[in-house]
Design a protein around this nucleic acid. Sequence first.
DNA 1: TTCCAGGGGTAGA
DNA 2: TCTACCCATGGA
Length: 301
Amino acid sequence: MVRLAVMFHLAVEEPYNFAQSVQDHGWIRLAPSTWLEDRQSFQYVSRLAGGKVVLTEVTVAESDTALSLAVTLDGTEPLRAAERGQIERDVRWMLRLDEDLSPFYDQAATDPHLWQTVRTGRGRLLRSPALFEDVVKTICTTNTTWRQTKAMVQRLVQRLGSPYPHNRDLRAFPTPEQIAAAPLDVLQTEVRLGYRSTYVHELAKRVVQGELDLEALKQSALPSSELKKQLKAIKGVGDYAANTLLMLLGRYDKLAIDSEARAFVSQKYYGGRPATDQDILSIYEKWGAYQYLAHWFDSLS
DNA sequence: TTCCAGGGGTAGA
DNA sequence: TCTACCCATGGA
């Protein structure tokens, strides 16, 4: 089998700590994303619109001057310019290379403790190329352990995703079409999504039927509260999941309060006594458009 | 056994 | 808007 590789560079604005930013978020441990420690690189199995499966690897480019990333695409067929362009846009989206965090940096610089962590260039939390993938992954984080989340996503990818020709153990995240075409029973008994099976299956069918245009939400100029209503209209997406998805869309004005956030705030601000959701909200309220990131960095530092 | 994990849907008030 | 109850799964 012929192996074809393409490499290109992406310019990056500093401060940006590639290795930390990619690994900070748990998403790096959800298939088909991987962190290759020995190569200090981020690997992702991409499925292009036409069905080609390509292995994408991103690492810091060797350079004495400006920071840039080296992106390598491995596949069996030559890539058209449009396909290469798609992957480049996907990588920029996944790593949030085009997000302007300077207003947050300005605000964070007024908090010496938080600034210690923020200034190191972390905080561009990893996300998936398609919002569909992130909605499914987020549904898989609810009311379960992180261990089970990883296992559910891994089984979903292995059972329904398209294989990478050079290594069939590597598969792309299944498309809405692939999930919709699978019998519900497969999601229940093989992927073992539990009661989430119907949510994920329904979501895939709605996307395939054109009833729900998730990709359009990425470009939406709607206020976060409006966007949140649309996200909560998805079965399986409640308050926590909707706010997590807003963060994945680059909106940081709402906190995703889960058991981890409750435990952290309780420990740090209430001496181990339980904190109500209102307590948590009031702590980060002053961060306005950047409440999620403020809490995120607070929990890191 | 029972509880609960990076919750959410639904019915009933 | 708030509360009680249910929901698959698997580890503790």
